[in-house]
Design a binder for these strands. Structure first.
Lengths: 142, 142
DNA sequence: ATCATTGCAAACACTTTGCATACGC
DNA sequence: GCGTATGCAAAGTGTTTGCAATGAT
C-alpha cells in the first residue's frame, strides 16, 4: 500500500517533468506502460484498464497516448500493418516481432553503419529498427 | 514502341520466374513498381493506373500486391501509421521518410551491430530500418 | 467562472470479404 | 467448359472528430 502510494507519486512526477498535467486516467495509462514493457496496442491498454475504470473511453486512451507521444514520454511503433504499438523505453533499440505468437521484444543495437553522404544533410528525428521472424519458443513448438 | 514491347516481355519473364501467371493488370502494376521506386501506397498505384485501365479495381491492386508479396517480388513497408507502402528493391536497405513532404527515400546500410546473444536463436525473416525526419529540401524551404 | 479533460457516438480511411461476371487455356 | 482473375459492393477494423458533460483550479 505504502509502496503503491509512493509509486503513484513517482508517476505524477514523471508526468509533470514531461509537462503534462496529471489526471486519474493519465496516471493509470502511464502506470500500465511502466509496468508492462510489452509494446501494447491501444486496445490492450484499454482492455487492461477497463475493469478498474469502467467509464474509461478508448478516445481517452488515444488522446493520452498522443499527448505522451508529443511530450516524448512514449514512442509509436509501426512494426506491422493495422496496429500502432507504444513503447516507453527511451533508449534507442531494435524491435523483434515474432510473426507466429505476435510477441514484440527489444534488442540492443550497438551501431548502424549507413551510407553517410546521402543522409547527413537531412535532419533525422527518429531511428527505428524492426526485425520480423519466428522466436525460439515458437520454433521449438514445431 | 519496340522498346516498350521488349520491356513488356521482360516483365512477363519476371512474373513467370516468381511463379505468377501474367495478366494485363499484374503486368501494369509490376511495370509501375519497376518504373517508380517511390515506395507507393495502394492508392498511388491505383490512381496512376486508373487512367489507362478505367475498369481497374482497388481490390485487384490489393490482391496483386498481396500475391507479389507472397512470391517475394515486393516487400511491404510499415513506415508510418495507416499506410502500407510497397518496395520492389530486394536488397536490404534503410528507408528515410520526410515527415514534412512525405517522400520516402532509400539509403544503404553497411552494417548493423546488434546484441547477438539475444537474437541468434530466433529465425529472422525480415530486417527493416526506418528513419524519420526532415529532408534537406524541406529544411531549405523554412 | 473558466478552462481543460473526458467520453459517447458518429464519421473516416484503409483494407478485406463475398460473390457474380469475365477471361484465358 | 473449367478454373482462375477481376471488380463491384458491403462489411470490417482501427483511428479520428464533434460535441456535450464533467472535473479541476
Amino acid at each position: 500500500m505504502a509502496k503503491n502510494k509512493m509509486k503513484q507519486e513517482e508517476l505524477v512526477v514523471l508526468l509533470k517533468d514531461a509537462g503534462i498535467k496529471p489526471s486519474v486516467q493519465r496516471i493509470m495509462i502511464l502506470d500500465y506502460l511502466v509496468k508492462n514493457h510489452t509494446h501494447p496496442t491501444v486496445d490492450m491498454i484499454y482492455r487492461a484498464l477497463y475493469t478498474d475504470i469502467p467509464t474509461l473511453s478508448k478516445t481517452t486512451v488515444y488522446n493520452t497516448l498522443d499527448l505522451f507521444t508529443e511530450h516524448n514520454l512514449v514512442q509509436k511503433l509501426f512494426i506491422e500493418e493495422n496496429e500502432i504499438r507504444y513503447d516507453i523505453d527511451a533508449a534507442v533499440h531494435g524491435h523483434f516481432k515474432c510473426v507466429d505468437c505476435g510477441l514484440v521484444t527489444d534488442f540492443n543495437i550497438n551501431r548502424i553503419e549507413t551510407e553517410v553522404d546521402k543522409l547527413n544533410e537531412n535532419k533525422i528525428i527518429a531511428r527505428e529498427v524492426y526485425y520480423r521472424g519466428i522466436c525460439k519458443k515458437c520454433l521449438a513448438n514445431k
